[in-house]
Design a protein around this nucleic acid. Sequence first.
DNA 1: CAAACATATGAATAAGTGTTCATATGTAAC
DNA 2: GTTACATATGAACACTTATTCATATGTTTG
Lengths: 104, 104
Amino acid sequence: MKNNTNTNNMPEAEILYDLAELFKIFGDESRLKILFVLGEGEPCVEEISDKLNMSQSAVSHQLRILKTSRLIKGRRDGKRIYYSLADDHVHSIIAQGREHVEEE
Amino acid sequence: MKNNTNTNNMPEAEILYDLAELFKIFGDESRLKILFVLGEGEPCVEEISDKLNMSQSAVSHQLRILKTSRLIKGRRDGKRIYYSLADDHVHSIIAQGREHVEEE
DNA sequence: CAAACATATGAATAAGTGTTCATATGTAAC
DNA sequence: GTTACATATGAACACTTATTCATATGTTTG
């Protein structure tokens, strides 16, 4: 038996770090909005910035962050790059958050 | 015509704001550690700061943030205040995040 | 080639945040 | 009351971060 039996559920340092980094990504309104827009289709950068009233540069900066975190992916077609959600985790993580926020 | 975000799945502004605020709470290693410790029992402030090698003041500041977000609750017994998770959402939100982080 | 268009990127700035330090509040024992 | 203990709180500081502005990169068309 190990010395310390009370910290079984504490993740390893690297997991903990990654987890905090992941939630930081979701902890910004602009990025959340972008993720919701991507949940509805596969928009290009211009469409995103138009819909959200954000500058092209601001959107592009945030897209880079989202892509680095592997939450979204981009597909180039000509001059445009079309972005979409990378997997279903985005949906489920946000859904869990909404349950807490929309409660009562 | 008013310029608004009339997309189907986009939450209302207030929900969006609250959602970002919620994820900001999770987006910090110290707070995550505290939440994991609370997941294992009902520690007092001193126990938390001992386990996590954080100062009493730092822990107390973070506990206030977590309590304000209704993620944890405190129960006073004498000089000590014992903290615990407020509901199951904490578990499920973190679990979803871990699935993404621990993947591959 | 050049021009026009879509997107990315670097630097600067302003706003936000977590910790520390010092101190205050609350509680129990004497 | 006063002393000791447990926790909370305010201010200051260092650090992070989202946006803006200017510019660069990549792509298509003429």
